[in-house]
């Protein structure tokens, strides 16, 4: 089974980190497809829930580390919303670990690749969301 992961990456850190992974040729599985947003604070719980509703196996949100947000505090909102969405997922019986929030800086290409690898392995282990 190949998991399908939808990722929302902020332009300044997460996306830049993914770029650096590319420039550094860090290999990771092609399970992940990236949607670029300007700030992780733009990510709405509904984006995440719709992804699951439509059949995504995992959703990844990446933003700047705390205190590094390009927009001062957007990542704090992202943190709050992802936490909230995890609770909602749990309440309706979806494993909240299918949703992951990671702070990935523009210098953390290796971390990004590792995150994708680990997340993919985890999703492979727990199997698809919709069978």
């Amino acid at each position: 089974m190949t998991p399908n992961i939808v990722a929302f990456l902020c332009n300044w850190c997460g996306y830049a980190g993914a770029d650096l992974a590319g420039v550094s040729r860090f290999q990771y599985p092609p399970t992940i497809k990236i949607i670029r947003v300007m700030c992780s604070g733009r990510v709405d719980p509904v984006f995440i829930l719709r992804a699951f509703e439509n059949g995504a196996d995992g959703v990844l949100v990446c933003g700047c580390h705390i205190n590094d947000c390009h927009y001062i505090s957007g990542n704090l909102q992202a943190e709050k919303r992802v936490e909230k969405t995890k609770q909602l997922l749990k309440a309706i019986g979806i494993n909240p670990d299918r949703l992951r929030l990671e702070w990935v800086s523009a210098a953390e290409g290796a971390k990004f690749a590792t995150v994708v690898k680990e997340f993919t392995e985890f999703l492979e282990k727990i199997g698809p969301l919709i069978t």
């Binding site: 709405d44 719980p45 509904v46 829930l49 719709r50 699951f52 509703e53 909602l88 749990k90 309440a91 309706i92 019986g93 979806i94 969301l129 919709i130 069978t131």
Partner: peptide, 24 residues
Amino acid sequence: HFGIFSTLARLMAKKTWKANLNDY
């Protein structure tokens, strides 16, 4: 609320998993 509650309801309607109120 961007349709979040009907999205959640539709997710619950899919019988592929069981809802869980354990920690509530």
